[in-house]
């Protein structure tokens, strides 16, 4: 309910900061088996277990890259490592290790392009959502990834944690430790909006929601 349903394909996550937004999306996705290719330390197990529940780690497999070549190798390897049950692939901070790498710029540019292409192929081959992000990247590298994405999720910081929007979808509520923080769209859905002659309500309902 918190995040829009994830469709197979390359899903670009627009993050408000370099921290736990991707982990947040992964938590809410409740996938059976997640494959996570990490860069830049996004795979914090504490971000994945936001409420301290170790079970949240179940079904998540991680490999971390520390160099651009390792990153590329891991993305390449992901196809083989994925099983029939893999229903989500997560690749945060895609450009992180290619930026400012030791060596000729053209070598890493080419490697980065190939990695982006592989990610697209991976989404096709597995027919699962592949979450990617580029919170700290040059515009050029971010665009190269973004342009390939099939859908985009926008993550915002709110007083109740991250809110995730997709075109045509606003979350009806946020799960908070045993209770729901509802949103205006939720109540609009239930009661109709002011001026909207909804079938179930004779009179417009006035709603005050923080």
């Amino acid at each position: 309910m918190q995040t829009p349903p994830l469709e197979p394909g390359l899903v670009y996550v627009d993050q408000p900061d370099g921290r736990g937004a991707v982990a947040h999306v992964v938590r809410s996705a409740e996938a059976t088996e997640t494959l996570w290719v990490d860069a830049g330390g996004a795979a914090s197990t504490y971000a994945l277990t936001a409420d301290g529940d170790r079970h949240a780690l179940r079904g998540v497999r991680v490999a971390r890259a520390f160099t651009a070549h390792q990153h590329h190798a891991l993305v390449r390897r992901a196809v083989d490592v994925a099983s029939g049950r893999t229903d989500l692939v997560v690749v945060p901070n895609v450009p992180a290790l290619y930026e400012g790498a030791d060596g000729p710029e053209s070598e890493y540019d080419r490697l980065y392009g190939a990695t982006c292409e592989l990610l697209e192929t991976l989404a096709d081959a597995l027919d699962v959502p592949v979450l990617v992000s580029a919170p700290t990247a040059s515009d050029a590298r971010r665009d190269r990834l973004h342009d390939r994405a099939d859908t985009e999720l926008t993550c915002r910081n709110t007083p109740f944690g991250y809110a995730v929007d997709a075109p045509g979808h606003t979350p009806p509520g946020y799960w908070r430790d045993g209770w729901w923080q509802t949103t205006v769209p939720y109540w609009v859905d239930v009661c109709g909006a002011v001026g909207d002659p909804g079938p179930t309500t004779a009179d417009p309902v006035e709603l005050v929601v923080d």
């Binding site: 494959l35 996570w36 179940r58 991680v62 490999a63 971390r64 160099t67 070549h69 390897r77």
Partner: peptide, 19 residues
């Protein structure tokens, strides 16, 4: 020439214990 051999995929729980 370039360090390219990445770590193997491991369960997130193992990462939690190992890191």
């Amino acid at each position: 020439w370039r360090a390219r051999e990445p770590e193997a995929f491991k369960p997130a729980r193992t990462l939690h214990d190992a890191d």
